[in-house]
Design a protein around this nucleic acid. Structure first.
Length: 256
DNA sequence: AAAGCAACCAACCGCTTTCTG
DNA sequence: CCAGAAAGCGGTTGGTTGCTT
């Protein structure tokens, strides 16, 4: 297939957007929407390619964009989601309302990755985030087969039906912004010791958890949260975030 | 005061995926 | 079903800002 031509190179402006351009784009989209990004700049009178307009709108001008520093809760959600989704920034962004994939990607590369790496150096060599990555070589498959089943790890998928679908409850790790959504992971989880994935909660102790963290909390028979049980001090953020919440108020988040 | 450096982040590039005729 | 166009996505770059020496 012939690749679609990228942006027209001639006569189109590149680089930082001016406030005038922003205003033109905002008012155009508010009036007409953005049905066709490629045609938009021409109709709006902007000397930009459609791609640039789309990026500017999505990453900066949208009215629902949340500006400002990331909260600690958001940072933990990113770390948590990245651990399970990898560099699927848009998928992560979809679970953090008001944040863009670009912003999350930047935060990851400039803050979180470094902090985690720093922390890795001070924790067990067999139980660090970077080590987790290195264990991805021979994937095993984690099944979440029903609301009442426990997660299980099997050596190989037997069919294409073995695509994992994490329950909403386990997806609650990503915080309570994950609503009414199956948390789909495309089949592979890391090759890990059986002790790695453990159920944070069982039917017996789930009542200790603030309801806000429990998706599908009505079903006390289903596993509520999965977390890597081998994390060391400070890295037990799943546990700290969702379990050690004391009286049910805002969790005390550990420092890295 | 200024030069050097690091951190940050907006924007670009190019590949992949999805849509459409 | 196929080819081309459009949109989506992730990696990377480069300009700006703030801090340190």
């Amino acid at each position: 297939m012939v690749r679609a031509p990228c942006c027209e190179k001639t006569g189109l402006k590149k680089g930082p957007w001016t406030s005038e351009e922003d205003q033109i784009l905002i008012s155009y989209i508010q009036t007409y929407g953005h049905g066709n990004w490629r045609a938009l700049p021409k109709h709006a009178g902007l000397l930009r390619c459609g791609k640039s307009c789309r990026l500017r709108w999505i990453n900066y001008l949208r009215p629902d964009i949340k500006r400002g520093n990331f909260t600690r809760e958001e940072e933990y959600a990113i770390i948590n989601l990245h651990e399970r989704l990898g560099n699927r920034w848009s998928a992560i962004a979809a679970r953090l309302p008001g944040r863009t994939d670009n912003e999350i990607k930047n935060v990851w590369h400039t803050h979180l990755k470094k902090r985690l790496q720093k922390h890795d150096n001070t924790t067990s060599p067999t139980c660090s985030t970077s080590n987790l990555t290195s264990q991805y070589a021979e994937p095993e498959y984690v099944h979440f087969e029903s609301a009442t089943s426990h997660a299980s790890v099997s050596p190989q998928p037997s069919s294409s039906d073995d695509v994992s679908s994490v329950t909403e409850a386990s997806a609650a790790m990503g915080h309570n912004m994950i609503k009414d959504e199956k948390f789909e992971l495309d089949a592979t989880f890391p090759h890990i010791d059986d002790s790695f994935w453990s159920e944070a909660l069982s039917a017996d102790n789930s009542s200790d958890i603030p309801l806000e963290f429990l998706e599908g909390a009505n079903d006390r028979t289903q596993p509520q949260v999965l977390f890597p049980s081998c994390m060391g001090d400070g890295m037990e953020f799943w546990y700290d975030l969702f379990i050690k919440t004391g009286d049910g108020g805002t969790p005390e988040l550990p420092e890295f």
